[in-house]
């Protein structure tokens, strides 16, 4: 999942981790920049939808422009 927008990654990353934990999703953040965050998540489609819904709104000090999802070819560790 790739999240594009404008954010202080510092405030957003813990938020993402908390939301994923609430959904019982195991995620790994691979890229964390001020305008791009990439994470690997595995789980049922409805739960990944829920992750996308939550993140697209996010905390008040971030603006998420778009979220793209692509299947991961090889499991990253």
């Amino acid at each position: 999942m790739t999240i594009l927008g404008e954010f202080e990654a510092a405030s957003f990353l813990p938020w993402i981790e908390r939301h994923a934990a609430k959904l019982g999703l195991v995620q790994a953040i691979c890229v964390a920049g001020p305008d791009r965050i990439e994470l690997d998540i595995a789980g049922p489609a409805e739960l990944i939808d829920m992750m996308e819904m939550g993140c697209s709104l996010g905390p008040i000090d971030v603006w998420v422009e778009a979220i793209h999802r692509a299947p991961i070819e090889c499991e990253s560790g």
């Binding site: 938020w15 908390r18 939301h19 609430k22 959904l23 409805e46 939808d49 829920m50 819904m53 939550g54 697209s56 709104l57 996010g58 905390p59 008040i60 998420v64």
Partner: peptide, 20 residues
């Protein structure tokens, strides 16, 4: 406007778009 205490699902897409 921060869903940190909520769990929106795909069924809530209109709500999420409205809040965005």
């Amino acid at each position: 406007l921060d869903p940190g205490m909520e769990i929106p699902t795909r069924a809530d897409l209109t709500s999420v778009a409205y809040r965005r």
